[in-house]
Amino acid sequence: MPLMTPTNKEAETSFWEKAEKSYQTRPARDEKHRENYHPREVVRCRVFWTMWAVMTFTYMGTAIVTNLFKAYGQTFINDDHYLSLVASLSSVFNAAGRPFWGMMADRFGFRIVAVVAQCVLACLVATVFTCEVTDREMFCVWVCAMYLAMCGLLTLIPALVFTLFGPRYFNVNMGLMDSSGIFSSVITGSVAPILKEAFGWHGLFFVAFAVIFIGILLNLSLSINCNEGSIPRHMYTDLSLT
């Protein structure tokens, strides 16, 4: 009698049924090895709020430049078509950089790669004004490099949330982490124009650098908070955070 092979639909249904059954029969967590953290537990963990602050300050410093780079470029580049091309190319680097930072994190660990990405971003933001005395192609390189560095932390945070707090409540926990983007966007949108009028473009970029630098310091302090927090230490050792 010939063997009957399942159809694609049947195979897909069987896969998800097995996955659901495996998920429902996971061993109960205990205090020594807790695999999934409920959002109510996550928001009481100082590690989460440290990560949230890292995201917030990095978002704010980045948004100051990325939201206004075209307006800044118009002060010394009289070509709107070229500036639109720069914006398009920067999106390509933003997308292409994500697998790159992911591979780096797999090899060297979250903390090292995240700090390197933040440091590169901070240096680019602090020196973007040098493009005023160079040709316009250098401005394109600078903006694309900023987007390449910017996506580093955005790529690493979801994997970190998944690993630290578990898969069961990942969507909610990641949503809580992404709420930092709302806060930083509101602050940046309301404060950046005021800072630009008060300090000019160069002063605005210095403020952006300072904000990102605060995020770097918070990231470096994450290992200390991990040791003092409520999440088991072994979870951070596995992530090369200590």
Score class of each variant (00 low, 15 high):
216 I>G: 00
7 T>C: 04
203 G>N: 08
45 C>W: 05
46 R>M: 14
151 C>F: 09
207 V>S: 06
171 N>W: 04
184 S>M: 03
207 V>R: 01
220 L>I: 10
56 T>Q: 08
19 A>R: 01
236 Y>S: 10
143 V>Q: 04
108 F>R: 01
127 T>V: 13
143 V>L: 08
97 G>K: 02
228 E>N: 12
23 Y>G: 01
41 E>Q: 13
240 S>T: 09
173 N>S: 07
67 N>M: 13
209 F>W: 09
74 Q>T: 08
187 I>Y: 06
142 W>M: 12
169 Y>C: 02
214 I>S: 05
99 P>E: 12
100 F>N: 01
144 C>Q: 03
104 M>K: 02
200 G>S: 04
55 M>L: 14
97 G>L: 04
140 C>N: 03
230 S>V: 15
188 T>S: 12
205 F>E: 06
135 D>M: 05
232 P>T: 09
9 K>L: 08
23 Y>M: 11
35 E>K: 06
160 L>T: 12
76 F>K: 00
224 I>P: 00
53 A>D: 10
227 N>M: 09
218 L>G: 00
239 L>I: 14
114 A>G: 06
218 L>A: 02
187 I>V: 14
194 I>N: 09
205 F>L: 09
97 G>P: 03
202 H>P: 01
97 G>Q: 02
42 V>C: 10
163 T>D: 15
5 T>G: 05
163 T>E: 15
161 V>L: 07
218 L>R: 03
117 A>W: 01
25 T>V: 06
99 P>L: 11
129 F>C: 08
16 W>Q: 04
98 R>P: 01
138 M>L: 13
7 T>M: 06
35 E>L: 11
54 V>I: 15
174 M>V: 08
196 K>L: 15
11 A>P: 01
194 I>E: 11
115 V>D: 00
145 A>Y: 04
61 G>L: 05
68 L>T: 12
163 T>G: 07
128 V>G: 05
63 A>V: 09
64 I>L: 13
195 L>P: 00
15 F>C: 06
205 F>M: 13
238 D>K: 08
103 M>W: 09
200 G>H: 02
127 T>L: 12
48 F>C: 07
57 F>I: 08
153 L>H: 08
155 T>I: 13
218 L>P: 00
118 Q>E: 11
184 S>Y: 03
156 L>E: 04
202 H>N: 12
129 F>A: 12
236 Y>C: 05
72 Y>W: 03
141 V>P: 01
77 I>R: 03
47 V>W: 02
16 W>E: 07
55 M>G: 07
224 I>L: 13
233 R>D: 12
76 F>H: 02
45 C>P: 00
35 E>W: 04
225 N>F: 11
89 L>M: 13
229 G>T: 08
13 T>D: 10
87 A>E: 10
32 K>N: 14
189 G>Y: 09
117 A>P: 00
96 A>E: 05
240 S>F: 07
40 R>E: 14
43 V>R: 07
17 E>M: 08
172 V>I: 15
42 V>T: 10
172 V>R: 05
222 L>F: 03
33 H>I: 12
11 A>N: 03
101 W>C: 04
125 V>M: 13
60 M>V: 14
16 W>N: 02
207 V>K: 01
131 C>V: 15
160 L>P: 00
5 T>C: 05
15 F>V: 15
35 E>C: 01
94 N>I: 15
204 L>R: 00
126 A>V: 11
236 Y>G: 06
51 M>P: 01
164 L>K: 03
161 V>T: 14
